[in-house]
Design a protein around this nucleic acid. Structure first.
Lengths: 234, 234
DNA sequence: TTATCTTTGTGATATATATCACATTACTAA
DNA sequence: TTAGTAATGTGATATATATCACAAAGATAA
């Protein structure tokens, strides 16, 4: 992690291009207060931003880059809950349930985050209902998306799950039909919830069927209609 | 559904024994406003309280009884997200994300609920930060519990999952080592995420191993230590 | 009461996916 | 460069669980 030099520590949240949706509910004076209680840090690919089990007195806001939200059950067995896009807060669910981080967060790309003082953030929620409402909405949205993804993971076969994951990256994360997967095959397997080998084999099947083309981590969707159909049929 | 006769429609939230944790943050005048915008209904076992896909202008608060939160993918295949205990709001995540119910809710026992006007509820959140904060907390808690349950469902073998479910009812729902399961075997299978037959067989194994005793829907835990161990080992 | 429908238990079989094993390729560091 | 390590692809085999099939027990209604 690289903390910015002094002259940049106090970021200006009023002029920030990466402001969260919720922060639109904040007044100028609240944004000034936020600026004073907010500082930036950078992480390299692979670095852990926040570890399971830790307690924090800061809210972490993802300005730039992709982050994986993951957990580890016993030794080795990792599972990835989701890949988090920029302009999201990390782990609000943990902070506002028992303020104990239930998952870990690691950078999948170079990442810029802001640390926001938890007391200030909580004060905003309690004193500015519109802000609180927006935070509530974003947590609810996140929950529903995760629930849906979990249920799909449970009910679909491997081809359905892989199709889901590819569509998730293409449509939700990158908004493009061609993208560089920010995960290794092993991590993709952790996200999908199957073995690395099964994922590899299913990718090969999709390539053979000319549904996608693959070059290392680069994936290009060749037949979106068929892919969506596989996802739907499961 | 039975709507209460007129003289009872306007419940008195100030003196209610079943008040939610969040409502403790409400002032007397807010509680009076709540009373005027809150009315009670009863449901029999098996009745649907709220159906997937519907939109509502009310928040539903579960005063008494147990409710299943569930969904249906295509024809037949039901999955049960969770069993909801009294003193909880139903489906807040749906209301505060897109106000479109993503899951259905049905009574597992005779149930009493309160319908609270959504505008009034939202007004409380926006104007009373402490109330909003408590609602946020409860949504976060619920999310985390569901995430954990989903991940366990994914990683554990059938015996681990069944042990989890039995412990969930014994410890979380009923707080007793002996209880009447509020679900059929089929529903239990939907909750656990496996086939009815596999669940039946695993129950028989637990009975043979003298970990539990079963009489119809009545379940008694005979060896809590072993059951917890099976749950942990997965 | 009898008849019908639903729920439940249990054995036999099928199947999707994990696991194992190993070859190949890509990456890292001396 | 070379050696060593990690990531990936792919075939053979193992295994957990679903599915099928059917009997028994309960529940429901005529």
């Amino acid at each position: 992690m690289i903390i910015q030099p002094d002259y940049k520590i106090f970021s200006n949240c009023l002029t920030c291009d990466d402001r969260s949706c919720a922060s639109q509910a904040l007044s100028v004076s609240e944004l000034e207060l936020l600026s004073k209680n907010c500082n930036e840090a950078k992480f390299e690919q692979g670095e852990t931003i926040l570890a399971e089990g830790s307690r924090t007195s800061n809210i972490i806001y993802l300005r730039e880059g992709l982050v994986k939200e993951y957990g580890k059950k016993r030794l080795q067995e990792e599972y990835i809950l989701q890949v988090i896009k920029p302009h999201s807060y990390l782990g609000l669910h943990s902070i506002f349930s028992d303020n104990n981080n239930h998952y870990s967060y690691a950078a999948l790309t170079p990442v810029r985050v802001c640390y926001i003082d938890l007391n200030v953030f909580t004060q905003f929620i309690k004193e500015n209902g519109r802000f609180g409402y927006k935070i509530l909405s974003s947590v609810c949205n996140d929950s529903l998306n995760n629930y849906h993804r979990f249920i799909d993971k449970h009910q679909k076969k491997i081809y359905g799950k892989l199709a889901d994951a590819i569509l998730y990256f293409a449509l939700v994360i990158f908004g493009k039909n061609e993208f560089d997967l920010p995960l290794s095959r092993k991590e993709l397997a952790y996200l999908i919830g199957m073995s690395r080998e099964s994922v590899s084999k299913q990718i090969s099947v999709f390539v053979q069927d000319k549904i996608i083309s693959v070059d290392g981590r680069n994936i290009k969707i060749l037949d979106m209609i068929r892919l969506k159909n596989i996802s739907k049929m499961g």
